[in-house]
Amino acid sequence: MDWFDNIIKTFLDFDAMLQVLPQLLTTGLVNTLIISVFATVLGIVIGMILAIMGVSRTAWLRIPARLYTDIFRGLPAILTILLIGQGFARISQQLFGPSPYPLGILALSLIAGAYIGEIFRAGIQSIERGQLEACRALGMSYGSAMRLVVVPQGIRRVLPALVNQFIAIVKDSSLVYFLGLLVSERELFRVGQDAAVLTGNLSPLVLAGVFYLIITVPLTHLVNYFDNRFRTGRRKATPPKSGLEEVAERSTLSPALAHGENT
């Protein structure tokens, strides 16, 4: 069973794992979460702007949004990250210091913004036209109608897709390592990778992978839960009620008119 021992040693060397565990927890996991959460928040802001532009009736707003989305969705993430991370290094240095960390987050959020913009746009456009018309018929402005009625419903409808996007961002956050991070800034993948190179053993990477799964798998199930809940509605089943009771509700108000015929 030599080969079996070999496999165990290569992938599941617990000593190697234990050695890297503290660093994975305190540095890797923390940084992965920081990068992912910041990129998602920024991405949501960018995405919302893109979506509002995308559903606008003005071509001057629609076309730039379309272009942006096509470019950042169409490029490989690694290419965008390298272009942004290295291209803006000098400006970033003046603003944030020598670390490429902020640029990595920026690049990720630019990419995420394109996807999230499409998610929001689909959500907003899935809201029946009648909602906007009802607002307009009451004298509300387009902006108020969107802000108070249409967009909130659209967002609610695409929450599952947003969680999916967050999962994608968590995974893509590993690409930031290409920009060369300081030791204290390394995320899960880079920490695992470093340890793997150092020990000549893949077990630290496997452990890093386990950490990714710990983040993503529960979220996947959360999506399913969301999805079910939003599809079926959260209300408890109420016993059916006869429509005839409702007739009484109105007829008490104007008895003189309640006996009108329907033909």
Partner: peptide, 15 residues
């Protein structure tokens, strides 16, 4: 509307 619910709305409109 379902037929039995029509009247409630119509009587309101008449009012």
């Amino acid at each position: 509307l379902d037929p039995e619910l029509v009247k409630g709305v119509l009587s309101l409109m008449a009012e």
